[in-house]
C-alpha cells in the first residue's frame, strides 16, 4: 500500500518573466488524499495543469506510476483522471453520451462499458440523469458529471481542482464522502480554499504561496503538535498585499 503513484520533482513554470510556480516537489502514495491549499494566484491551478499534461513545465520532471509524463505522455495519462476548475462538459450531449465518450477516450474496454457507466453513475448519484442533456442540469449535477468523467476509468491518480465549488451543503457532504472513497483505492489531489474541507477529507496538506511550498505536513502530524490548520495558513500566507493592509 505504500507504492508511490505520483512524483514531481522541482517543477517550475514561468509566464514570461513572472514565475507562477517555483521548485515545487510532490509525492503521493497510493491511498493518500493530498490537499493543496493556498490563496488566489498561489499556483495551485498551474501545478495541477502541469501534473495532468495540460501545461509543459519550464523545468522539472513528473512521473505517474513510474512513467515519465513528458517522455511518454499517453502512457502516463492513462493513469490519470482530471477535473479542471471549469468542468469540461459538452453542453449539448446527454450525460450518458458524454460519459461514454470520456470512457472511450480513456480506452475503457468495450465489453466493460455498460458496467463501468452504471457504476460511475451510481457513485456520483447520477442514476436518474443519464438521458438528460448536460445543459439542462444544475451546477451541482454538472459538477458531478465532471467528477464522473474523471473517475470513469478507475485511474490511479485523481486530480480535482476545487471540486466542491458551487454545491449546496448536502452535495458537498456527498462529494467529500466520494473523495474519501476514492482515496481508499487511488491517490487523490484536491485543491481548495476551504480549510474545513482539508481537515475533513485529506491525509496530508501542502500550502502553496506565491508559487512555493510553504508547508508539507500530514494532518495527523498537525494534530499531534496541537496546531490548528487555520492559524498555520494565515501565518504562512498573510504577508501578501492584502494581508499587510489589515
Amino acid at each position: 500500500m505504500t507504492t508511490i503513484t505520483l512524483s514531481a520533482q522541482n517543477l517550475c513554470r514561468n509566464y514570461g518573466s513572472h514565475a507562477a510556480v517555483r521548485e515545487i516537489s510532490l509525492q503521493l502514495r497510493r491511498g493518500e488524499v493530498l490537499g493543496l491549499l493556498g490563496p488566489n494566484g498561489a499556483g495551485k491551478t498551474t501545478t495541477m495543469r502541469m501534473l495532468t499534461g495540460n501545461l509543459a513545465p519550464s523545468s522539472g520532471s513528473i512521473e505517474i506510476c513510474g512513467v515519465d509524463l513528458l517522455d511518454k505522455p499517453q502512457e502516463a495519462k492513462a493513469h490519470l483522471g482530471f477535473l479542471p476548475e471549469i468542468p469540461p462538459l459538452y453542453q449539448d450531449m446527454t450525460v450518458d453520451e458524454y460519459l461514454l465518450f470520456a470512457a472511450r477516450l480513456h480506452r475503457v474496454n468495450k465489453q466493460a462499458m455498460p458496467t463501468v457507466l452504471n457504476n460511475v453513475k451510481q457513485r456520483c448519484g447520477l442514476e436518474d440523469h443519464g438521458k438528460y442533456l448536460i445543459v439542462t442540469l444544475s451546477k451541482g449535477f454538472q459538477q458531478r458529471v465532471g467528477i464522473a468523467q474523471a473517475i470513469i476509468h478507475n485511474p490511479d491518480v485523481v486530480i480535482l481542482d476545487e471540486p466542491t465549488v458551487g454545491l449546496d451543503p448536502n452535495q458537498i457532504r456527498e462529494i467529500r464522502k466520494l473523495i474519501r472513497e476514492l482515496g481508499a483505492s487511488s491517490s487523490v489531489i484536491l485543491s481548495t480554499h476551504i480549510l474545513s474541507e482539508v481537515e475533513n477529507v485529506c491525509d496530508r496538506v501542502q500550502i502553496l504561496h506565491k508559487g512555493c511550498v510553504m508547508l508539507d505536513e500530514t494532518l495527523a502530524g498537525l494534530q499531534q503538535r496541537g496546531t490548528c490548520l487555520e492559524d498555520v495558513f494565515t501565518q504562512l500566507t498573510h504577508n501578501d498585499g492584502l494581508g499587510s493592509l489589515i
Binding site: 495540460n54 469540461p88 470520456a102 477516450l105
Partner: peptide
C-alpha cells in the same frame, strides 16, 4: 471557449 479541450488533452490521446 467551453474549456472542453482540457478533457481531450488530459486523455491518453495525442
Amino acid at each position: 471557449r467551453n474549456h472542453t479541450l482540457t478533457l481531450l488533452v488530459s486523455a491518453p490521446i495525442s
